[in-house]
Design a protein around this nucleic acid. Sequence first.
RNA 1: GCCGACGUAGCCCAAUUGGCAGAGGCACAGGCUUUAGGUGCCUGUCAGUGCGGGUUCGAGUCCCGCCGUCGGCACCA
Length: 952
Amino acid sequence: MSETDNTAHSANNPSHRYTSALAQTIELRWQQKWASDGTFNAPNPAGPLADPAAIAERGDKLFVLDMFPYPSGVGLHVGHPLGFIGTDVYARFQRMAGRNVIYTMGFDAFGLPAEQYAVQTGTHPAVTTNANIENMRRQLRRLGLSHDMRRSVSTTDPEYYRWTQWIFSQVFNAWYDEDAERARPIDELVAEFEAGDRVALDERSWSELSLAERNEVIDDHRLAYVSEAPVNWCPGLGTVVANEEVTADGRSDRGNFPVFKRNMRQWMMRITAYADRLIDDLELLDWTEAIKAMQRNWIGRSHGAKVDFESSAGTITVFTTRPDTLFGTSFMVLSPEHPYVDELAGLDKADEIAAYRKQAAAKKDFERQDDTREKTGVFTGAYATNPVNGEQIPVWIADYVLMGYGTGAIMAVPCGDSRDFEFARKFDLAIPAIQTPPPAWFEERSLDVTLDTRQWPEAFVGDAPYVNSSNGELSLDGLVNKAEGIAVMNAWLERTNAGEATINYKLRDWLFSRQRYWGEPFPIVYDADGNPHTLPDSMLPVELPETESFSPRTFDDDDEFSSPESPLDRLQDWVNVELDLGDGVQIYRRDTNVMPQWAGSCWYEMRYLDPTNTETFCDPAVEEYWMGPQTHIRPDHPGGVDLYVGGVEHAVLHLLYARFWHKVLFDLGHVSSKEPYARLFNQGYIMAAAFKDEREIYVEATEVEGSEDAGFTHDGQPVAREWGKMGKSLKNAVSPDEMYEEYGADTLRLYEMAMGPLDASRPWETRDVVGMYRFLQRLWRNMVDEETGACTVVDTAPDDATDKLLHRTIDVVRTEMDALRFNTAIAKLIELNNAVTKLDATPRAVAEAMIRMLAPLVPHITEELWRKLGHDDTVAYIEFPTADPALLVDDTIEVPVQVNGKVRGRITISADADRATTEAAALADEKVIAALAGNAPKKVIVVPGRMVNIVV
RNA sequence: GCCGACGUAGCCCAAUUGGCAGAGGCACAGGCUUUAGGUGCCUGUCAGUGCGGGUUCGAGUCCCGCCGUCGGCACCA
């Protein structure tokens, strides 16, 4: 206890003051009671948690969901629960507004930290994970979150990952039907091949293909498949990682190790098949534009054309978004990794090219992407034919063309593309003009209008009349916009078989396997011929085998040519297994990869709905009740969670993967919702001051002394302040335990909700917390005698002014709570309480309404007050107050009168005064007359009930 | 460079979506309570819509152009 302690331990406080000690007593008692009563259990329409009577009693369903946390060992700081408190307030409010609310919390518990800890300590990750989960549950319970604890799950529970494996099998045994634009079971594909409705490979019929050929065709269609492809190999982690997990500078987002592109055999998920739907269905979602933009950007759909250029090495296909500029193509550029490079390389150029390729390969991706770099490249010595005019154009290689995008080859149009322009200038290549830029373009560059591109300082990009763009069959000359030019060119390309309109995506298939221990094993075994088989449902879950050595073999960070070795590979007793998969008992080899961290979070919200179901991952009737489309909101409502709250950092990882899996499950008929999360809300972060000493090392923020004006010091040494996300790494975390100790959970909740809008990041200021504490103390004092603990609420009716204020407050608070604007709701409630403080005694009607309005925000103190007022039921399901419309309007109102837009007087008039009456009253006001100074009004604007503006 | 969000008082933030710039909290000053510090209570002060233009009777709000902050993407053809 410090000397500045403000708790009940100070001897002079009245014994029934709302102090932190009393708050803690109240909070722990109610948390215990809610748990033992199952207060927040939500009824299901069917299955083990079914309670049809309760369903009938409650109103419409509401699914409120938090992004579930990773159960870290270090515990929570006050920045973590911001979103959780927000969802809890909302869930509690909606329960009181009559909704049947489902709200719980699970744990996303597979992943690297637990595994790394296990490697260090030798403790099995399941042990530490479960301990961390228990600790986190305790911390969340201390906040008073109204979770239905029966529904809490962990992704690491075998009964949970059994269904993660089952869903994987569903994905594996499905293919994407491009015509139907949806996934279908793989059996239906086989049936179509067998019936001859679909051509598998070549002119041979299905029955003529060998078994191996058939398997290959089928595997080529699966939504989960093994492929030998360039992947991100991270020697420092000993595993491959997904594109989404590689940072812009070519390192792993976990651990920050270098990542190398390598060809390896790995599991992939065909998320690219869903690229269009993942973009298009964003329209149906109530998400912020920022997140939608990030997803669109990540998927990177661009419309364009593929164009074929003939060369000595064969046809070089390029992707371009500007086929209309084909007449301006004066050279081609291939990525150094392009497969045709060797063939194209002239004998005299071979050494030069080999040297350039080697140099390019030595560079990391991120180095090649530094666009401030000067262009480099090498001429191959070969030429290709421009299909529109038969011109022979030189073929170069350069590292500004990336093998990973489009076809790895481009047609260079230097007059219309800044990169090609730069390249052409550097290597003195032709820059034919094909558009006449508008005069303004030349003016801005202090040039006369000219088509002599030697005078142009840069490429022209945009709409402008085409010139020099015709051949015998085709002319763009005279057209003025590119949409038209593209349409004409695409038609010609298709007519002459020189190319076709196409759509290109940045999105790549999802690399789904990891060579680690602490993840879901694949439900896959391989037969003697190496063909993969999914295990039947009866053999799930495939449990992680016990072992002492959890670590994958890791390598030197820069050991690019090392190879992954999964920990499961070492467990040969587990790997080799005798099974009867229908063809008699045979020996199979298990897959030794595990799934990535993101697998378990792709569907967890559905397990909350039906957590104990052993027959299926979620009963369809239960899924439809909680997640089915809400067509009363919008006719094309996609279904899904009604409110999903979490940080913006999952914009392209979890949120993209989860949408993809959900759509597969939708296509296969397992769920009624097209999308998992109908409404997404991104909470802000709590920031805190962090301090660095002169060595640029962070020092413990709590030990820093001084002020902004006087300067900050740590141990007498000057330190510099900066702002950052609260956390361990910046040494600026504030523990919730300190807040409970000093104020209690209700004050902490209220402070976090009051400090700003839920979606805004804001700095934590411990010294500000006391404001909310004082508010709760006043609230308590308005209803409880601090000396005796007796209830002081009186049964007399409130006076008119108080009654009106009460109902106006109710009106605003209801609206604000519903819109997640808790900060403004709190301000109104403080205002009301301040008014009540001035009364001689608090009328019961006011007290009870205040308790009900505050119950979602500060559930413990309100339960206690509700009881003191003589009720013996929980306030959690008491109806939220509704304003009496009659009390929202005043008989008379004060209206400002402006003269030329400046307020010069105020008039008090009847609230329903019409225009003429208002105007007359305004013109009669003394101050207004004075302000007019005898000038006759030119115009009088009256907004009835609002204001008057007189223009002179 | 492109995309997105945001700039209101010493600080965190409101402003019925075009209508009186200030609701709430912190800080600050004075007073009461207290042996004192702290707690608690009462009263009070000051000052501001990033900059420049436009639309309007009226702009924090809408439009145009800058400046700044944060986030995402980036040699994506």
